[in-house]
């Protein structure tokens, strides 16, 4: 980890890592989509619409995983003062928000034929919506500061407070339960989903994860370059001031 505290080292890593993760993601998406459309059965109750699940579920997982990664980065900023931790957190916010939005939109499209409505105020849906709102707040705070280092520290505090709050939100939203089916893959007594659907789901989940990695590294690279440009601009402005 410490080796990549130097942005130049990280950029070198990203030059290899981005095509690698991107390529892996493309490959997995190709296999996964083929499995989804050609190799997995339609559901006996839900028909073809069940295929929405292969986008919906991985998007939900990664929307939550991105927030956890962001909380980890926040710890990196506040505790270890890792110089790239806030770059990582900043890159993750829009990606996580996009996955969460994708989960909400596909869920809505799936809900219309299945439940007969675009939206219900059920516990799981509402928690995901609140997660999306938290992403929105974090991105708003990023934009509110001029200086990226100060923004990083403020956002890190907010991210951690939000992370503590997520279980509380989940618990309280469960208070007025629930149309949504309970979790059926990650359970203590093993998955209840049939293998013919589980395999494509897992392939798609790995494809999404690789996509997250690629996008994350690209976002970090862009942020590092943007900060370099900002620093160059500031130095140039100071040089002009000194010359006058």
């Amino acid at each position: 980890m410490l080796r990549y505290a130097n942005p130049a080292n990280f950029l070198r890593l990203a030059r290899v890592g981005i095509p690698l993760a991107g390529g892996l993601s493309a490959l997995l998406f190709a296999v996964g989509l083929w499995l989804v459309f050609a190799r997995s059965p339609a559901d006996y109750q839900q028909g073809e619409t069940v295929r929405i699940m292969y986008i919906h579920v991985p998007a939900a997982w990664l929307g939550m995983a991105s927030y956890s990664l962001m909380a980890l980065s926040a710890l990196g900023t506040l505790v270890w003062r890792h110089p790239l931790a806030d770059v990582s957190a900043k890159a993750l916010a829009p990606i996580g928000a996009a996955f969460t939005l994708l989960c909400l939109v596909t869920g809505s499209l799936w809900g219309k034929p299945m439940w007969g409505t675009w939206w219900v105020w059920d516990a799981r849906l509402t928690s995901v919506l609140v997660l999306f709102l938290m992403y929105a707040g974090i991105m708003a705070l990023w934009n509110a500061f001029e200086d990226p280092a100060r923004a990083g520290r403020a956002v890190a505090v907010l991210t951690l407070v939000g992370f503590v709050n997520i279980p509380i939100v989940k618990f309280s939203v469960d208070w007025w339960n629930t149309l949504h089916q309970p979790a059926s893959v990650i359970r203590l007594d093993g998955p209840t989903i049939h293998p013919s659907m589980l395999t494509p789901l897992l392939v798609m989940a790995f494809a999404f994860t690789a996509l997250l990695l690629a996008l994350h590294m690209m976002g970090m690279r862009n942020e590092i370059l943007a900060r370099r440009i900002r620093a160059l601009g500031l130095t140039a402005a100071r040089g002009e001031e000194a010359a006058e």
Partner: peptide
Amino acid sequence: VLAVLVLPLMIPVLIFGVS
């Protein structure tokens, strides 16, 4: 910005207060 930051965190209080 403040309103956008804190309102999502206030949801649990609102839920239990109203119920």
